[in-house]
Design a protein around this nucleic acid. Structure first.
Length: 498
RNA sequence: GGCCCCAUCGUCCAGCGGCCUAGGACAUCACCCUUUCAAGGUGGAGACACGGGUUCGAGUCCCGUUGGGGCUACCA
């Protein structure tokens, strides 16, 4: 046996904060996390970063898990599991952070500060007025133990700040961009433990990533500027840093970071609008990564197989809803009839107000009928939500076509009525009600009436479906059946003759 | 303002010094197919931000300019 290098177990985490429903940009990071962990046979860990109590929203915490689940991003460790690194919620790990912060104070890397928010604001204001960069001036470094305990007695808020070196250079290696360096004069004494006893992100994630053995921190590019702070903490705590993978941001149409302001939709909204999770996954992974050739349509396993960090791009990507829609169509068309019908059904079942079928249509929805319809609408769909509009006439008792739509521009009412009467006869006398057969006899009839096929089919289509845009006519008639087809054309004639 | 990151068609990507008169995809336009709408097919238009280097040779490496973005909280 060849000597095998011991390969380090890869541990990746997705660490969202429950302050809102995950949107596209946020979940794309989770996708990268997941893919990378899978590609390395590592662990995918979900950790909830709820250290900001004022912004905490329990509802969004649930939506985080719903989003991951829907996209098929299964996690190996997380709040719902009792893993070796439990608990996976920061508010339940407070003691780790307090301990670390106090340790830093003892070792002289941090200090208590009783500067009030008001004083801080005044400081920033003054700096701005003087054209100076707004930065904490380190005044707390000179507070004595006595000062602090006095303030504490007065009930003033006390924080712990990290004592950042004033000079020198800091450099770190980003797996996507290479070396990035900062001047330490840029970094002020930042807060690591807030006055409510909770840690800031900077402290909390460093402690947790270390405790949980995270090997790769995959996060958005917006974190690059605070990475030196994280390095400082690591050095002071004598912690070996993980590898950093800063992925490019996703932009909205206006080329700025995607956010709610763009109407950036949450993952769950895409679900509700009839997007397939595999399509969204595929589309999103292509925003900031490519396999190196022109392949675009790839399933999860292929993506996992081909994924490498060095193919993550350095530049931001604009989210293009149109391309997502196109890709969704590709995935819809690739589904088998029964599978597609199964996926469509829940959308139809929903109450009318939530985008489902009209409430006048009986539930449960007839799925055998749906399976018959699906082959004829498959290539007409961009989203599963499109289905309703396209096929509701199959399920309705009757339809009411618009008179002005019934009469083609190239015909008048009299000739339209004539054409419909002829159709009525054909339908009544048809022995074989198959699409193929119907098409034959209707084409023959058109010739007799001296009409172009399209000309003749149009009034029939509208009579029967109530719509201008519909699935192919003869398949529609076949599925609808003789009786309903007859009835609806009859009804259209009545309308025109009135 | 300061710091950091980024820079190929409108958009997403390919290109990692010669294979590039720059390739693919979405969108767009034209045509074909056609019973509506789609889907599909064929073709067209469309980009290396700019200026300096390095090199026999630069979209590809370096520097600068410009432009865009991010960060600059007791938010993450």
């Amino acid at each position: 046996m060849v000597e095998s290098k011991k390969i380090e177990q890869v541990n990746v985490r997705y660490a969202p904060s429950p302050t809102g429903i995950p949107h596209i940009g946020n979940i794309r990071t989770a996708i990268f996390d997941w893919i990378y962990s899978k590609s390395k046979n590592g662990q995918f860990i979900v950790r909830i970063e709820d250290t900001d109590r004022s912004r905490y929203d329990p509802h969004s915490e649930q939506s985080i898990f719903d989003s991951l689940q829907w996209l098929g991003l299964d996690w190996d460790q997380g709040p719902d599991k009792t893993g070796i690194n439990s608990p996976y919620v920061q508010s339940k790990r407070k003691h780790f952070y307090v301990e670390a912060a106090e340790k830093l104070v003892k070792s002289g890397h941090a200090y208590y500060d009783d500067t009030t928010p008001g004083e801080l604001e005044a400081l920033r204001k003054r700096q701005k007025a003087n054209g100076e960069p707004p930065r904490y001036d380190g005044r707390g470094r000179f507070r004595s133990e006595k000062d602090i305990s006095n303030s504490r007695d007065k009930g003033l808020p006390i924080v712990i700040r990290f004592k950042a070196p004033k000079t020198g250079n800091l450099e770190f290696y980003d797996e996507v961009r290479g070396k990035i360096s900062f001047n330490l004069s840029e970094i002020d004494d930042f807060v690591i433990l807030k006055s409510d006893g909770m840690p800031t992100y900077h402290l909390a994630h460093i402690v947790d990533d270390f405790e949980m053995g995270i090997t790769h921190v995959i996060r958005g590019e917006e974190w690059i500027p605070s990475t030196p702070k994280h390095q400082l903490i690591q050095t002071a705590l004598n912690i070996k840093p993980p590898k950093y993978v800063h992925v490019p941001l996703i932009f909205g149409k206006d080329k700025s970071k995607l956010s709610k302001r763009h109407g950036a939709k949450s993952v769950l909204e895409y679900r509700d609008e009839g997007y397939l999770p595999e399509a969204l996954f595929n589309y999103l992974v292509l925003l900031g990564w490519s396999p190196g050739d022109d392949t675009e349509i790839m399933d999860k396993s292929e993506i996992v197989k081909r994924f490498t960090i060095n193919r993550i791009s350095e530049s931001p990507a604009v989210f293009d809803p149109e391309k997502l829609e196109w890709m969704n169509g590709i995935y819809i068309r690739s589904l088998s009839t029964t599978n597609l019908a199964q996926r469509i059904l829940p959308y139809l079942e929903k109450p009318e107000k939530d985008g489902g079928f009209s409430d006048t249509i009986e539930r449960p929805i007839n799925s055998n009928l749906l399976i018959k319809i699906v082959p004829h609408i498959r290539e007409r769909l961009k989203t599963l939500l499109d289905v309703k509009e396209l096929i509701d006439f199959f399920y309705l008792e009757s339809v009411c076509p618009k008179i002005d739509e019934l009469v083609p521009k190239t015909m008048d009412t009299a000739s339209t009525v004539k054409c419909l009467y002829a159709s009525l006869n054909l339908i009544k006398n048809a022995k074989d009600f198959s699409a193929q057969c119907l098409e034959n006899i209707f084409r023959l009839q058109a010739e007799k009436l001296n009409l172009k096929p399209g000309q003749m089919f149009s009034p029939i289509r509208i009579s029967v479906t109530g719509k201008r845009i519909a699935p192919p006519l003869f398949e529609t008639l076949e599925i609808l059946g003789k009786e309903k087809s007859f009835q609806r054309i009859k009804n259209a004639i009545d309308m025109l003759e009135k």
